[in-house]
Computed example of a mutant assay.
Amino acid sequence: MQAIGLIETRGLTPALEALDAMCKAANVRLASFKRVGSGLVTVIVEGDVASVAAAVEAGAAAYQKTCGQLVSSNVIPRPHPDLARMLI
């Protein structure tokens, strides 16, 4: 795995919309989908660094267009194996 991208949203439907935009925008795959609590949902994708960065940007834009302020997003290039194992 070369990179992990994360987007945290408020609600399941906006998370699915962001995930759809992420997968359509770049060559990434869903690595994990977590309900954090208090309505927060985290979508985690993986792929090469450029694809993950493009996917996170597209997912954040799709979320902000429909729902407003994004809770959080991040791209982690070359994650440590322990971190990747914890997230995925």
Rank of each mutant, 00 (worst) to 15 (best):
S32C: 04
E46I: 03
V28A: 14
C67S: 12
A55C: 06
T42L: 14
G68S: 02
L40W: 10
T42S: 14
M22C: 13
G39A: 07
L40H: 14
R35C: 05
K24G: 05
E57P: 01
A26I: 08
C67F: 07
P77K: 11
L70D: 00
T42P: 06
G39C: 08
L83T: 07
G59M: 07
A58I: 02
I88H: 09
A84P: 00
R85I: 01
L87K: 07
F33P: 02
V56I: 15
A62M: 07
A25S: 15
A25T: 03
L30S: 08
P79M: 09
V49W: 08
A25D: 09
A53Q: 14
V56F: 06
A25M: 07
A55H: 07
R78S: 10
A60H: 03
S32R: 14
S38F: 13
C67A: 05
G68I: 03
A50Y: 10
N27Q: 15
V71I: 12
G39Q: 12
V71T: 04
V43T: 10
P79K: 08
D82M: 12
K34F: 09
R29G: 04
V75Y: 09
E46M: 11
A62L: 03
E57G: 01
E46D: 13
I76S: 02
I76M: 11
S51E: 08
A25L: 10
L83R: 06
V56P: 02
G59L: 03
V52A: 09
Q64V: 00
M22D: 10
V41C: 11
A54T: 05
K24Q: 13
S72L: 01
R78L: 06
S38M: 14
Y63F: 14
A31E: 09
N27W: 11
L40K: 14
S51V: 00
S51L: 09
V56R: 10
D48W: 12
N74I: 09
P79S: 03
L87C: 07
A61Q: 11
L30I: 11
M86D: 03
M22I: 10
R29P: 01
S73M: 01
G47F: 12
V52I: 08
V43M: 14
M22G: 13
S72K: 06
H80C: 01
L70A: 01
N74P: 00
Q69H: 04
V56N: 08
A58L: 02
G37I: 13
A62V: 00
F33R: 13
S32D: 15
V45A: 08
G37Y: 14
F33M: 11
